Amino acid sequence: MSDHEGSAGHGRFLTGVAWALVLVGLWLWGSEITDVRGGVSEPTNGDVAAVGRPFAVELPDAHEPLGAARPQRVDIPSLKVRAPVISRGLDPDGAIDPPPFEQAESVGWYGGGTRPGAAGTSLLVGHVDTETRPAVFYDLSAVRPGEKVRVTRDDGSVAEFTVDDVQVLSRDRFDAKKAYGPHEEGRAELRLITCGGSFDRAAKTYSANVVVSAYLTGVGP
């Protein structure tokens, strides 16, 4: 993510994120996943590195899940991100197809899964960069717990999520349960995912993924 260079080559995100999201298929197939952990205030170490998890952040109570509605736009005020959402499916390997590079300012939503605001974990993916420029989630690792993510839905509502966890999950010991499993059963949760770590030019892949976790805390028109 910090290794953005125009000459690095087309296709970084697609190869860099596929190794992680290939496990989405397994997660969806056998989702007996329950709580990942009791809380998110303690720092992590080893292959799962916390990007930012201040001890003093007081997080609001969860809002009751909403009815199902398709996402149309994602707003992350702290990053000045305001991006359209397009529905994406899985590729033959079971990875979420990210938006095509000509739509690198869009966010991809896994349309076969949970709709943002409904109970469960909704998955949103975005490019970190392209061959020539930063993309929609270039600064995603700068998000911090307590900040807001707003998803405009096709029923006219805006689902407001509060970030509760930001992690960089390494390629070598990726854990789908930690990435995609609910932090608390019964909540409406959101995952924002992009590439992270260092970029391997030979392999044309990133060494990690940035995974931002958030949960529903409000709703507005």
Rank of each mutant, 00 (worst) to 15 (best):
A104Q: 07
K204R: 12
A68P: 14
D164W: 05
Q103C: 12
S207D: 06
E58Y: 04
Q167C: 00
A159G: 10
P71N: 14
D97H: 12
V158K: 02
R53V: 00
R187Q: 13
S31I: 10
P77S: 08
R201C: 04
T121S: 11
L66F: 10
F13Y: 02
K80S: 06
S170L: 08
P221D: 09
A83R: 05
E160T: 13
G111L: 02
S213V: 15
G39P: 02
A8R: 10
A214F: 04
A176E: 06
R153D: 11
P65I: 06
L14H: 03
L14C: 05
L123K: 02
T152V: 07
A18Y: 07
G120E: 09
D129P: 13
E185G: 02
T162R: 14
W27N: 10
P98C: 02
G9N: 07
D75S: 13
V211E: 01
Y180Q: 03
G117E: 09
E5R: 13
F137P: 02
V74Q: 04
Y180A: 05
V163Q: 01
L59R: 00
P116L: 11
W19M: 01
E105I: 04
T205M: 08
L123D: 00
V81M: 07
A62F: 14
S87T: 03
D154W: 10
G112H: 05
R115Y: 10
A83D: 09
G108H: 01
P92M: 11
V24K: 00
V211A: 02
S106P: 07
G52D: 08
A208Y: 14
A119W: 06
A119N: 04
S198P: 05
D165N: 04
E105A: 02
V212T: 03
E185I: 12
D93G: 09
A119E: 09
M1G: 15
V166G: 04
R191W: 14
D129S: 14
G197Q: 14
A176K: 06
G218R: 08
G197Y: 15
R133S: 06
G9D: 05
T152S: 06
G39A: 12
V149P: 07
G186Q: 08
F55M: 00
D91L: 11
L124V: 05
R171A: 11
I193L: 10
L216P: 02
V17I: 15
T44K: 00
G52R: 01
G112V: 14
V168T: 04
E105G: 01
G196M: 11
R88K: 06
C195F: 15
H10A: 08
E32I: 12
I33V: 12
P182C: 13
E102V: 09
S87E: 08
G113C: 04
Y215G: 01
P60D: 00
I96W: 07
S198C: 09
